[in-house]
Design a protein around this nucleic acid. Structure first.
Lengths: 187, 187
DNA sequence: ACCTGAACACCGTTCAAGT
DNA sequence: ACCTGAACACCGTTCAAGT
């Protein structure tokens, strides 16, 4: 049954899974295609039957990351109370938690090296759209959604770089209500 | 003189200079110690006479980056008019311009891989201190300086990732006055 | 269609040795 | 003190070949 048909069924999914797993422990720069293949008991270039290059595999990982991020934001929005402030805080909290819990995947998603595929770029746009809709009409500045994005993105990456330690031991997603406060401008 | 004493005088400075130069064209991930040495006409492991490892050289580059960032922020503050809002905008403008003009050096400065040396960590703290002092007492939130930092940091890295293109063709440092507006809360 | 084996051109790093 | 040459254990990727 589909198990060990050739070597172990579905190498493509196994590679993505193994890579995602490796990203729990190490930054994307440490990911090695040969090592991934070795862990799955397959030859060094077997991956090339499923991915055009290492960058192609990384692009698929990135896409998965954006899809997951959007899904978690949508879930948070669904259970949040109504009112712009609490919606915004819920969205920010989901975003910050995703970034804190998966710092290496998050870093890969925003890495600057290779140009993302069209599919990955649109997954990124889709996840940002959720934030843009919630922020829409909140302030007078039409770019407020971008500033909101920069704020959470900056917090996630500064936290990953260890520059937010002076803020104390609380997880960064607890900052979400204060971010909403700043963006809305009520003080 | 002091030229070509052994091979060409000061290999350490030449390596840092060549690396800084390479960062103008390519991301830090592409930096190769062997290639740097080759460009300077020196053997592949000559760098190890001056740096303990590749990470050690990268750490020195990072430190230089933070020192330069602080210096440019200090210069901007010196020529700025008085008043919290214009000071903050001047500081933000200097930060954003640095990040936009040297995206690869900036990315290296905040890379997550190796733990920064104590000297580099304190250079980072020093550059942040400038921002903290300017923001101090501006709002009721004691963490406002961190939010300000996250905001500019987020804008620089989103811009480097190509996610800020919808904002138009203007360089991101033009956003500085609006950032100050948001942080101060006058609208 | 999916995988192996051998090879190529790279890496960072170490070690012995030269001046 | 500063550098070279040869070597080791890795990389990503390609090519011919196997089933």
């Amino acid at each position: 049954m589909a198990k060990d048909t050739y070597h172990h069924g579905n190498l493509r999914a196994a590679l993505l899974n193994a890579a995602l797993n490796a990203l729990k422990d190490e930054p994307p720069a440490k990911l090695s295609l040969r090592q991934l293949a070795g862990c799955l008991g397959v030859s060094a270039n077997a991956p090339y039957a499923h991915f055009a290059s290492k960058d192609d595999l990384l692009d698929a990982l990135r896409r998965e990351g954006f899809v997951e991020l959007k899904s978690e934001m949508a879930d948070a929005l669904a259970v949040a109370g109504s009112g712009r402030s609490v919606e915004l805080a819920a969205l920010g909290r989901a975003y910050l938690r995703f970034g804190r819990e998966k710092p290496h995947l998050y870093a890969l998603m925003f890495a600057e090296g290779p140009v993302p595929s069209e599919a990955t770029a649109s997954a990124a746009t889709d996840s940002f759209a959720l934030l843009r809709q919630t922020v829409e009409g909140l302030g007078t500045d039409p770019d407020l959604a971008h500033f909101a994005w920069a704020l959470v993105h900056g917090l996630v990456t500064l936290d990953a770089a260890g520059q937010l330690e002076p803020l104390g031991a609380a997880p960064i997603e607890d900052l979400a209500p204060r971010l909403a406060q700043i963006l809305i401008g009520t003080r």
